[in-house]
């Protein structure tokens, strides 16, 4: 039985990443505060229209303008500060050195995922060598020995509870790489690499979306993230490596 894709009053998808819990807490805090302020402001607006003050009194600008303003400033400062802490934890530093490396390449309208293989290094790529018909959609340079064992897949498979460092690239136009259940999103920009790192926690299949309009097929630039228990992942990876070795052995 598949769980419903979203849950709760706010309709959020399940959170399956290590940093997702803190993010969700902060997001929900923000949403409830916004809802409360919304209700309060509308209450004041409607009450203010409905009631009739008997004797007009002079304005107390301090109490009805500056004090609430100061309170709001403090509230927003607090929220901003917490958000910056979470942001800094995720973005100010790169992934741990032991993090798993996967390269993500967006092109109209597919995602490709590349694992470095047993040598732990990605081979050079060259856009002029891109040949999807010859099973080289990323243009891996055949003269580079690092590239021989690189594994290219169309499904992102990751082990649970291990940090992963994604290198994002785009071949043609800007794409948006997003995994809602992992609470990550980052654009892939042609001509430059960007990094994003996270730790998947709960095994399962998750949606990968393109979130930056990239052409007519934008809506079907979807992929799947499969998070596996570590042991199962290792088996999968070994199978892929063996397949890759067999492919390269054949001339």
């Amino acid at each position: 039985m598949e769980a419903p894709p979203t849950h709760g009053f706010w309709n959020l998808p399940v959170d399956a990443a290590a940093h997702g819990h803190a993010l969700d807490t902060h997001l929900l805090l923000n949403l409830w505060i916004a809802l409360a302020l919304l209700a309060l402001a509308h209450l004041i607006l409607l009450l203010g229209i409905a009631i009739r003050k008997r004797t007009p009194r002079p304005y107390h600008q301090l109490f009805i303008e500056y004090l609430p303003l100061a309170a709001l400033t403090l509230l927003f400062a607090f929220l901003a500060l917490r958000a910056q802490q979470l942001w800094a934890a995720q973005r100010y530093t790169g992934a741990d050195l032991s993090a798993m490396q996967v390269e993500v390449t967006g092109q109209q309208f597919v995602w490709y995922f590349r694992y470095p293989g047993p040598d732990a290094a990605f081979g050079r790529t060259n856009l002029s060598l891109v040949a999807p018909a010859e099973v080289n959609p990323l243009g891996i340079d055949p003269t580079d020995t690092y590239g021989r064992d690189d594994i290219v897949t169309s499904q992102l498979v990751l082990p649970a509870n291990r940090e992963v460092d994604l290198t994002l690239r785009a071949q043609d136009v800007i794409h948006g790489f997003a995994i809602p259940e992992m609470r990550i999103k980052q654009n892939a920009i042609p001509g430059q690499t960007t990094h994003i790192h996270f730790t998947p926690e709960i095994p399962g299949d998750y949606a990968i979306l393109c979130t930056q309009v990239c052409g007519m097929g934008h809506y079907r630039m979807l992929a799947t993230l499969r998070v596996l228990p570590p042991a199962v992942f290792n088996t999968w990876l070994h199978t892929q490596e063996a397949l890759q070795a067999k492919d390269k052995a054949q001339p």
Binding site: E2, A178, I208, C210, T211, H218
Partner: peptide, 22 residues
């Protein structure tokens, strides 16, 4: 909040977790 992206011309499509979410 359910993660529906902008600029998607269709929300039904290829089967898989993405399609379920959309």
């Amino acid at each position: 909040l359910a993660a529906e992206p902008r600029h998607y011309s269709q929300l039904t499509g290829i089967a898989g977790p993405s399609a379920t979410l959309l």
